[in-house]
Design a protein around this nucleic acid. Sequence first.
RNA 1: GCCGAGAUGGCGGAAUCGGUAGACGCAGCGGACUCAAAAUCCGCCGCCGCAAGGUGUGGGGGUUCGAGUCCCCCUCUCGGCACCA
Length: 875
Amino acid sequence: MQEKYQPNEIEHAAQAFWNTTQSFRATDDADLPGSKPKYYCLSMFPYPSGKLHMGHVRNYTIGDVLSRQHKMRGYNVLQPMGWDAFGLPAENAAIQNSVPPAQWTYDNIAYMKRQLQSLGFAIDWSREFATCQPSYYKWNQWLFLRMLEKGIAYKKTQVVNWDPVDQTVLANEQVIDGRGWRTGAVVEKREIPGYYLAITRYADALLADLDTLPGWPERVKTMQANWIGKSTGVRFAFPYASSGATEKLWVYTTRADTLMGVTFVAVAAEHPLAMRAAQNNPQLAAFIEECKRGSVMEADMATMEKKGMPTGLAVSHPLTGASIPVWVGNYVLMGYGDGAVMAVPAHDERDFAFAKKYGLPIKPVIAVAGETFSADCWQEWYADKERGRCINSDKYDGLDFDAAVSAIAADLKARGLGDTQVHYRLRDWGISRQRYWGCPIPIIHCPACGDVPVPDDQLPVVLPEDCVPDGSGNPLKKRADFINCTCPKCGTAATRETDTMDTFVDSSWYYARYCAADNDSAMVDARTNHWMPVDQYIGGIEHAILHLLYSRFWTKVMRDTGLVSHGEPFANLLTQGMVLNHIFSRRTEQGGLQYFAPDEVNLTLDDAGRTVGATAKADGLAVDYQGMGTMSKSKRNGVDPQSLIETYGADTARFFMMFAAPPEQTLEWADSGVEGAYRFLKRVWAFGHGIQASVLARPQLPAVLPEALATVRREVHLLLKQANYDFGKHQFNTVASAAMKILNTLEKMAPYAALSGHDGVRAECFSILLRLLSPLTPHIAHTLWRELGYGEDILAAPWPEPLEAALVRDEIELVLQVNGKHRGNLCIKVGADGTANRTAIEAAALASAEAQKYMDGKPPKKVIVVPGRLVNIVV
RNA sequence: GCCGAGAUGGCGGAAUCGGUAGACGCAGCGGACUCAAAAUCCGCCGCCGCAAGGUGUGGGGGUUCGAGUCCCCCUCUCGGCACCA
């Protein structure tokens, strides 16, 4: 055994051992007698962006800690890994370096795989795949065809960002302040056809089944429920006359109780009524054109200035028959509901602002006792559903929210103008992308037969891997060998669909594929039902809604297609906090953003030491400081763990990452503290080296330990108890603290070297420390376990549990308070049951010198005793 | 703007059910070892104060014998907002 801690040496040896013994190969032995319970531990697979960053290290270390601990606790653990390999960054890299996305992606995978392996993760690599492999995405296509058959997949128009210069569709990320990131051209909205998946059909199930997921964080379930946004309201129509006939303008509202307060109706720019009005109104036509530009993003829609223009048309109030003017509003979306909203300025904040701006009437129809309505400024109570009662509403006057809604809905229904309706905020999932590097949508366009699905026996539709996108549209459009085909129905010449699927499709079922990754003839098989659902899923909180919701939806579709037996993919979810770093950028001449890595700039600090700006090291010119943000390749603020691993070893990197903060917490990156983690591991090694001979001699514990040794042993078992509790909470930073405290305790044993049982206590406690550390720092734990002769393989050792016998003590320390202030401590003898008599505690407390001093001769009014914790004397 | 989370010493963080605020570590300071440095080891370390003591968990208010923890209001930071993944 080396005297000095040599991380690189022992880490290579330990990894070679795990390789040789195939330690992390998960066996599909569900039905064998005596088989272990399964534990499917999954970390979200990475996008192969080039290098790992600290967010990856954090994510995968958390998963590895849980995997290794469960393995030691006797589970059959599956921890697979793969690659979310399709996506935009590969195309961006191609534009920059003229390298085909496929080659770039596979190179990145090779590099990142080596990095993952050097961190010593307990991964079953035999199940690895990348989503850009035809053997994987074939099944995206196959299930898409099943969805098409069931009507879950369908085609309709979608609104996209269009760059008129590059003649290409832009992702939201590529639109900066309304302009294309490369061309600087003002981005237009454009309507094009695309495929949708009817996730709204599952809205109720996706909402209701959240209650079957006790292992999910409440905040994630709340976010999903709000995203689905189930509401019960009223869909009704404003009738109007049009060329002799009566037509209906439909709207949906959750505030039907305010219907008598409607003073205008707003419709989307694309609404037929708006289009009709614009035919002989050039001003309105121009405004509609203006609305059609602008952003498609919800955040922009919500923050932009609300504008409108009258159409000159009017509709009738469905109950009073009053004439209601119709406006076009830039904040009304054609894609939501019916593309029109009723406006009640008195009781909706947005309508209030709009009415004030354009001088529209405001009619209060809700009163709250003790409040006086004034149209001068908006008050929170105007929208209060709880306390409001109807006024100025004829027969509905005096009704509360529920009664008014019911009565009004009933009256609308009686007139054939509406009814109550359940509405969801959730929209269907548009999966068509006008991009090359993705899974081809298996459709053939035939001039005679229309859109024809590719027959199953012609799957997969393979994406050619040698294209190099240049930023001007999808290169598949130029590939005759891809596009040209024959119609499966009529055999005449036809063309292939060139749109590819949203990459969220790829990540919506990869966890199921790991269980049957080698199956060439089916998407999943019986092994999937054995391993699924995932017992512990770990990934960034940024995926709380989209990825997790799409995966839940996809799983339900797979279940309803008879492929799997479960309806929820992830039994337990741990949402890891983001690892943040500073973001620096500069505007380019074209109006795009150029990002600078933190090590490429010099910081400008204010008096308080906060970062307020920076200058680029390269040219000395100013760059903008954008604050802290998630580490990502596109923002160039990722920190590569490579140098950390090379300097200190994987164990230090892992330990430091776990020690830095609890997993769910956001973490601002700083590497100060890495040295401390390294120092600790060096001390662990040195201690192990120092006691090697003694432990190899297998020292025994005497029946009765001297008090000093019993105390050491009790402290270590108490720390272990705490650490096991923290493991259960996934609070690995305090597990790391406990390990440090155990070593501190053991290092203070030196004065007791001559006492009987010293070596035995030390050997027992050090074996606890090694096993506790094993999930966090597996290499050093593995090596010392063998060197000290504890066993062949620490992974096969039982997980340590505190011994009750070691925890017993005969006195406890209580905090003494006078009037709630800490004034001293009390030592009280306890009985065999570990508790002390209450009257004895009170007597001892009142008699203590500290109590006498601070009671100042006054009689005690009350004495509060919190068992095992404190005594508070109130005077 | 909407939805969700967070804020504790110079820094990362701890405090399990409302019960000793600052565990553990980093940085810093002092000392030992050394020709010297590194490494290592020992000690100190929230703020004000000579001390007694007071004060202190983003800000303001409240409940309680007792609040970092519960309630109300506010500020700031982070995540998401449907084509980044």
